[in-house]
């Protein structure tokens, strides 16, 4: 059948007439202001509490520790966490105490989460993501984040700038420290453990595999007098490493090692590929799979 021509279909653009730029912008320029308006916040809160949270708990039975450190933190605050999986964000959002949870935005890579309009809409709505350029320092991104902190929004930042490729952390970047200095808000170090077993980066796995995870919050940090962003950033990394140590050993050992300054690095041993992987925690024992009824 012949397709119906103009005027029953969209007109083609004359070659001689220049085409104006599309008005919908994606990437770092995406306008996400709508996602913080009241009705959207309400809808997001409903989805977070009734869909995201139970779903996350099903695939990743979660232990949460250190919420006592948040008791005396006045919002807004910056949460700086290690990053191993796409599961980290929904997990963090759903484990934050309620007074933070529904007023938190997440710094998300503009090139990954905001490269298509539909993705931008999805993430802005689902986790209140804001686009951050990770390839280079972008003043606008920083301004937006700072402005949001000013407005009283909490911020989740992954200072590694992306998910870990092999299970060990990557070096922390200075964004969170910079924002803390600029806004004067405290940084809460967070360690998320085990999400790579549920939904690792790459590997072709699309469906999550059930495995227990833990989230540990540390005591809030504020930049010292005269401490620059780089130094403060390193302090944040160490704070997260101490939390990691606490998960794999115990609180006392972690504290003593921290005091001696020999907390194991988040970045793992500097050896060949398989030994780095071998040094990782083994996957927690999977629940027994026996298809036979016991008689």
């Amino acid at each position: 059948m012949k397709p119906a021509g103009f005027p029953f279909s969209k007109p083609t653009w004359p070659t001689g007439v220049p085409r104006p730029a599309p008005d919908r912008r994606v990437g770092v320029d995406y306008d996400h202001e709508w996602s913080r308006r009241y009705p959207v916040r309400l809808a997001r809160a409903v989805v977070l509490d009734n869909v995201t949270r139970p779903a996350a708990r099903i695939v990743a039975p979660t232990t949460v520790r250190g919420t006592e450190h948040l008791r005396h933190v006045a919002p807004p605050a910056i949460f700086a966490a290690n990053h191993a999986s796409h599961l980290d964000t929904p997990l963090l959002l759903t484990t934050l105490p309620v007074r933070f949870r529904h007023r938190t935005v997440v710094a998300a890579a503009a090139d990954h989460f905001f490269d298509r309009h539909w993705k931008a809409v999805l993430w802005s709505f689902g986790v209140a993501a804001i686009p951050i350029e990770r390839a280079r320092v972008n003043r606008r991104s920083a301004d937006v984040a700072a402005a949001l902190l000013e407005e009283g929004w909490n911020l989740i930042v992954y200072p590694e700038g992306g998910r870990s490729p092999d299970g060990w952390a990557q070096p922390f970047r200075g964004g969170a420290a910079y924002l803390a200095r600029r806004s004067g808000r405290p940084v809460v170090p967070v360690h998320v453990n085990g999400t790579r077993h549920v939904l690792p980066k790459g590997g072709g796995r699309r469906l999550p595999r059930r495995s227990p995870v833990s989230v540990v919050f540390g005591p809030p940090l504020t930049p010292d007098e005269g401490e620059d962003a780089r130094r403060f950033g390193a302090r944040i990394e160490t704070a997260v490493a101490v939390l990691a140590d606490e998960v794999s050993s115990d609180w006392w050992q972690a504290r003593t090692r921290a005091a001696r300054g020999d907390t194991p690095s988040l970045r793992g041993p500097d050896v060949a590929g398989w030994r780095r992987s071998w040094a990782l925690d083994p996957r927690p024992e999977a629940p027994g799979r026996d298809p036979w009824p016991r008689v």
Binding site: D166, G273, W274, S277, L280, R283
Partner: peptide
């Protein structure tokens, strides 16, 4: 076991 697999297979070893 997963531990050996995950340590070697991703590196092609």
């Amino acid at each position: 076991g997963d531990r050996v697999y995950d340590a070697f297979a991703p590196h092609g070893l």
